[in-house]
Design a protein around this nucleic acid. Structure first.
Lengths: 207, 207
DNA sequence: TAGGATTGAGAACAATTGTTCTTATTGTAG
DNA sequence: CTACAATAAGAACAATTGTTCTCAATCCTA
């Protein structure tokens, strides 16, 4: 019984994808794989799909499957020796992927002030805000108060909704906000990114 | 003179791509864009290509262009209504470019524990680590202690270098670490990403 | 109100698409 | 050697592809 060496086909496809960021058509795959017939190429693709290296995308095209980005791992825990991780360069766009689910509804806001420091949100961070009208109690929201954006926790008591800071050390500086004419919520806090580097314009980690 | 509102088309395409990871064909784009004619869809695509939101991939297919992953940045303080942000030219930035300067030297690590909570680093965050041999006192570093990675502040006193936690509330749980045979520094903490959302897939930057 | 650009519909084109079928070649197990 | 599965080629299919053309509706400005 022979065994089709799928990995060599996969390897060429991975290299192609790394360069072009697109899975080619069957016809082009035939060429990429040294000019096999399209019917045969089609079969190999089927196997790659069975093994989750490829999957179907809408419109009968292909896209990378769950295992497509697996690299021959060797061993993750190699007696704690980490330098092997250096030869792997992560697929950078996946960070964006990871953080942002609805691009058209998502906006980044630079954080000013330390009112949310106890939620791990520091001045200079970029919070990721997704537009939404349906926040829940206890969620961090970006609200509009006095024509300014403010990032606070949405809370509620018998008097109604209000906004709460998260700064235990200086809580007196951030009293709850109770707008008279209703609360305007711009969006939900769904993540943040922080860059601590270069030009060191923010170094006070100790409060 | 009318103006085609390209951004609404782009938004829908970006949302589609975020979900499907594939740029659809012209025919499917027509449907996605509310059933325009293919010829007209074709023209819009041309404009998106001119503005570097899309580009040609081999085999007459499309792929995201350089600007496709730009995210808009808002401003905390804005005079006027934020709903219609059209009055100000939106600032754009690519998260990956922003965070990562040396891809080949950069690795993400998931944070475990709360020892760095006072530095705004929470459990579940992903810290961005850049390999380096030259840390400075006071910097957050990823060190190797007892064959495990640990994220701490590099400190020094008359007895030598040591590692310090940043958890004021439970500092007794995190005494300074003074390895006997020298300190092994894996890299520097240069940023972090956090995703606070219940749904969604997990990011595995497998190597 | 008239003119012109923008936005869109619809038809038509060759080319390419994914798929399935049949047939030929190869390698290896028994 | 025989038999059989794996590997490959080639033909054929309807469907979809990107593109270009003409023509109609809509909007803005002068």
């Amino acid at each position: 019984m022979q065994q089709l060496d799928i990995s060599s086909y996969l390897g060429k496809l991975q290299d192609y994808y790394a360069k072009e960021k697109v899975i080619p058509s069957i016809t082009e795959l035939s060429v990429l794989w040294n000019g096999k017939a399209r019917s045969w190429t089609h079969q190999i693709v089927q196997r790659l799909k069975e093994e989750d290296f490829l999957e179907n995308a809408p419109g009968s095209r292909l896209r990378p499957g769950p295992r497509f980005f697996e690299r021959t791992v060797g061993h993750m825990v190699r007696a704690g020796m980490p330098q092997q991780a250096a030869d792997v360069q992560p697929e950078l766009l996946r960070i964006d992927d990871y953080l942002i689910e609805n691009p058209s509804q998502t906006i980044l806001f630079p954080v000013k002030g330390d009112s949310m420091i106890d939620a791990g949100i520091l001045e200079g961070d970029m919070v990721i805000i997704e537009r939404s009208n349906s926040p829940s109690i206890g969620q961090v929201v970006l609200a509009i108060v006095d024509n300014e954006f403010t990032l606070k926790v949405l809370a509620r008591d018998k008097r109604g909704y209000y906004l709460e800071a998260r700064n235990h050390g200086r809580s007196s500086d951030y009293p709850p906000i109770r707008p008279e004419q209703g609360l305007e919520i711009y969006g939900l806090y769904v993540g943040l990114i922080r860059k601590t580097r270069t030009s060191g314009h923010r170094l006070n980690f100790n409060r």
